[in-house]
Simulated assay, not measured.
Amino acid sequence: MRPPLDSGTVLITGASSGVGREIARQLAHRARTLVLVSPGVGQLEALKAELQEHNPTLGVILLACDISRPGEVGDMLSELARHFITVDVLVSAASVVEQDLFVGQRWGSIERMLMVNVVSPLLLIRRLLGSMLSQGRGGLLYVGAGASQLFLPGAATYVATQRCLDGFIESLRLEVEGAGVFVTQVAPGPVIDAALSAEGERSGPRPFFHVSAERCAREALAGFERGEPLVYPGWGHRWVMQLLPRLPRRVRRSLGRWVGRERREHSGTAVPALTGSPGRLQQGTPSPA
């Protein structure tokens, strides 16, 4: 048994760029309908035209939804229900990354990160999972971050949100085991979006073990179809992340201290890219690590 990607309806948050956009491209020749979600549909019009040009029978629904506002998430799901659209697979690929020492972060920024990275994914899953279970088929592909396993001074709130979802997804997988609903978490390291690189939005040296958004999406979907609980895209990143749990906690703290020293020595710059996280809203931009 495999997740219902073929001839199914797939809802993708974070579809305007990065891993979310690449997943949409790779599913366009397989899905019956793609529901693409972004704060503004203008960001998705070009993608819709591209997908339908190569796949004329594909249905593409564009929905404007700012997932930092749970009310908009609820309205979006209600709109789908009014049109009798049943989601077979949810791809949650939107997140927000804001890097700073915790004491220096505005509470509004912290609250927004919690809403986008924790509250809205849980709301989406809560509203969609019941239908999947009643049909005995469905899937959840959650694009998280390798940061869920790290200690990162200067990104404490972001790490907290990722660790929260890591525990939730692993537990949820056990709750629905045997019910026909596939649950896979993707925990990438540094992800490079070729489109943003071409536009000059990324500068400086690329981080270690980086992977393209296209490859991240491809490995994510392959792991999802194999029913894997956790996917680490890229062989280098996968090797490091599989080694990490074997390290004593004190060693992991030492790595965190090194990050903290680098952060202080380069005050005003982003945290060293152990995870490759860009410091801005990502509703489909280069995937957080």
Rank of each mutant, 00 (worst) to 15 (best):
S203K: 14
G200S: 09
P248Q: 12
R250H: 12
L196A: 14
A179T: 15
G204N: 05
G234T: 04
L172A: 04
P190R: 00
F168E: 00
C216T: 09
L230K: 15
E170G: 09
E177W: 15
M241E: 02
A155Y: 03
L172N: 05
D193Q: 02
H237I: 02
A195N: 06
T161C: 14
G204T: 04
G234A: 06
P188F: 00
A198L: 11
L165R: 03
V186D: 00
T161S: 08
M241F: 06
L152F: 11
P207G: 06
L247T: 10
L172V: 10
A220G: 04
R206V: 14
Y232G: 05
E214S: 13
C216N: 00
G189C: 03
F209P: 01
A194N: 08
R226N: 09
T161E: 03
Q242I: 07
A195Y: 12
P245T: 05
D166P: 04
Y158H: 10
L196W: 12
H237L: 07
V251C: 13
P248E: 13
V181W: 01
D166S: 05
V183C: 03
V191R: 05
L152N: 02
L221T: 00
M241N: 02
V211L: 12
F209L: 10
A155L: 01
Q185A: 11
R173E: 09
P245M: 01
R246S: 12
L172I: 05
G154F: 00
G167P: 01
G167E: 01
V231C: 07
G200N: 11
M241G: 01
R253I: 10
G204M: 09
P205K: 10
S254T: 08
Q242W: 13
G180W: 04
I169A: 01
G223Q: 01
S212F: 02
L196Y: 15
R218K: 14
R215N: 10
T157N: 07
G234M: 04
A194E: 13
A160T: 05
L230A: 11
V191I: 09
E177R: 15
H237V: 06
R249T: 14
L221S: 01
A156Y: 07
V191F: 05
V240H: 08
A222W: 13
E219A: 03
F168A: 08
W235Y: 11
Q185S: 11
I192V: 13
D166V: 06
